[in-house]
Simulated scan of single mutants.
Amino acid sequence: MKRNKISVIGAGNVGSAVAFHLMISKIASDIVLYDIDNKKALGEALDIYQGTSLLAPVNVYAGTLEDTKNSDIVVITAGANQKVGETRLDLVNKNIQIYQTLIKDIVKYNPNAILLVVSNPVDILTYITYKISGFPKSRVIGSGTVLDTSRFKAALARRFNLDSRNIHGYVIGEHGDSEIAVFSNLHIGGITIDEFLKLKHIEDINFKEDIASEIKNAAYEIISRKGYTNYAVAVAVTKICTAILRDERSIMTVSSFLDGQYGVSDVYLSTPTIVGREGILEILELTLSHQEQMRFRKSADVIKNIIKESNL
């Protein structure tokens, strides 16, 4: 029986939460936690491992980059943390320097792995990982707006007192300030959002703008209170890893390399994407409203300009 191996690069708030949730999900036989601060990685790995006897057999341990060898998935959470008042894009130059060395070492030991980038700004760092690694675009994925899409559904579910699993919609574009909540394709129980608002006698005066603002600012809201986000993103990362290892062919808004979709090329952005054992299997292109289309292209321009101006 094949053992599934996932390595998590970075044992900080996000990396340790990811490793913990992967352990709970029971999808991997081996989980390796690496951090430049080996003492921290050892502590986190030991803490997680001691709960395994209550769930299912899984080998959780801290190691060197060489110990990540032959991983099925390498989850990259390493990088500078987002500080209060700092946007995701402010992090780019700090993290580019880290990635230029890190990715080469990861590829050395994991030439056949799928690389899943989580560090922010995720779309830019996924693009950089793709360029440095030399991997096919199908095997370099960003966590993208999977979390933002979850926040979108959760916000609507709370407003309407519904099960969020019955809300079907997406946040696309950048995982950041230029993201787009796609109301034109939003359905609740098979009913369009506009029909649902009429059914509930809710006037659409600033409703959509308020929801979009809530999900866009969700991370800033949390960071202002606890200094970082980690739990929900760990769930999102585990969902992506599960889709890969179980070859689920799930549709998720991961950050994918676009090659003409929405009139955009040579950039990583999020759009509904079929994900399976080989990574990105197919990118789906939504029919957007004119305004959403323009905003998506603007989101692409934001990312491209940052890459152009960064210290690559």
Rank of each mutant, 00 (worst) to 15 (best):
L186F: 06
G134H: 12
S184A: 13
I141R: 04
A155K: 09
G134R: 13
V140E: 02
R151T: 15
N120I: 02
G134P: 12
I193N: 00
I132K: 12
T129N: 01
Y130A: 05
D177E: 09
I141W: 01
I128P: 00
H187D: 08
V122I: 12
L156K: 05
P121A: 13
V171L: 04
N161P: 00
F183V: 06
R139P: 03
G169A: 09
S178Q: 12
K153C: 01
V140A: 06
T149Y: 06
T145N: 10
S164W: 02
A155E: 11
V140H: 04
E195F: 03
G173F: 10
A181L: 11
H175D: 13
L115D: 01
I191L: 05
A113M: 00
H168V: 15
I141F: 02
Y130L: 01
I172Q: 03
N185W: 02
I128G: 04
L116C: 02
L156Y: 08
G189D: 07
R165Q: 10
K198E: 07
Y130R: 03
I180D: 06
I172W: 01
L186R: 14
I114C: 09
A157C: 08
S164G: 00
V122Y: 00
I193G: 05
N166V: 12
I124T: 07
G190V: 15
V146C: 02
I180K: 05
V146K: 02
G176M: 03
S164F: 02
A181G: 14
N166T: 13
I132D: 08
L186I: 14
V171S: 03
T145I: 07
G142P: 00
K131T: 15
E195K: 14
L162I: 08
I167H: 07
A155Y: 07
E179I: 15
Y170G: 03
H187R: 15
V182W: 07
S138I: 14
I188T: 15
V140I: 08
S133T: 15
R159C: 08
I141T: 04
Y130P: 00
G176A: 04
A154E: 14
L162F: 04
S143H: 08
K137H: 14
E179K: 14
I191Y: 03
T145D: 04
R158A: 10
L186M: 09
I172L: 01
V182I: 15
I132G: 13
L125G: 01
L116G: 07
N120A: 05
R158G: 09
V117M: 03
E195V: 14
I172C: 02
V146P: 03
L125M: 06
Y170K: 06
Y130F: 09
A154V: 15
I167S: 07
R139L: 11
P136K: 10
A155I: 13
R165H: 06
